[in-house]
């Protein structure tokens, strides 16, 4: 961009529909919270209410877990891993592969008794997997639209950022 100090406003429809699809999926599947992250571990969309959960920690651990399991899977099963579920006493946590190397992590607050009751829960009641088709389609649409950054943020932005770097990363050397 030119150096007007203003930063671009919008990225367009595909990004918005990806975010909407994540929010809708979280709601429809009855998850407490959901995060979509890319193959570098960065969040691109989120939905639900994290509560006292620390999102970045949650995502970085999900990222590690899925990556480790995925690397293990071909050796263990000869196939590709597209889902990974972990069930605890009070929660359930499902990771699903999404188009373009992304992962959708959904966290459910399932009561322990719900785990044995297949009538409870929506399409993703314990025992079945959440339906992530919408997110997958939206991710594909985004890739087709080209998700590369077209404009930079301008030299005023990076100058301000450098100031913040000096402030936050001070400390004696």
């Amino acid at each position: 961009m030119t150096d007007s100090g203003r930063v671009p406003e919008q990225r367009g429809v595909p990004e918005a529909s990806l975010r909407t699809s994540v929010r809708d999926t979280v709601q429809r599947e009855g998850a407490r919270v959901g995060f979509l992250f890319d193959d570098s571990g960065m969040v691109s969309a989120a939905g639900g209410n994290p509560g006292d959960l620390e999102p970045t920690s949650f995502v970085s651990l999900s990222f590690a877990q899925f990556a480790a399991a995925r690397d293990l899977a071909p050796e263990a099963t000869g196939g590709e891993l597209s889902r990974l579920a972990q069930v605890g006493g009070r929660c359930r946590f499902v990771l699903s592969s999404i188009f373009g190397g992304r992962t959708l992590a959904l966290l459910f607050d399932d009561a322990p008794e719900a785990l044995h009751d297949t009538r409870k829960g929506g399409s993703s009641g314990p025992g079945s997997y959440p339906d992530v088709m919408d997110v997958d389609r939206a991710a594909q649409a985004l890739s087709e639209a080209g998700s590369r950054r077209v404009e930079g943020l301008g030299v005023n932005w990076s100058r301000d950022a450098e100031g913040e770097i000096d402030r936050i990363f001070k400390g004696e050397d």
Binding site: G152, L153, G154, V155, W157, S158, A161, E162, I165, D166, F169, K170, G171, E172, D173
Partner: peptide, 21 residues
């Protein structure tokens, strides 16, 4: 002892934000 830690981090961080403008 923390020597050079922030100095190195600042240098790279600033290069990174420069790539965004």
């Amino acid at each position: 002892e923390g020597k050079g830690v922030f100095e190195t981090l600042r240098a790279v961080s600033k290069l990174v934000v420069k790539t965004l403008n």
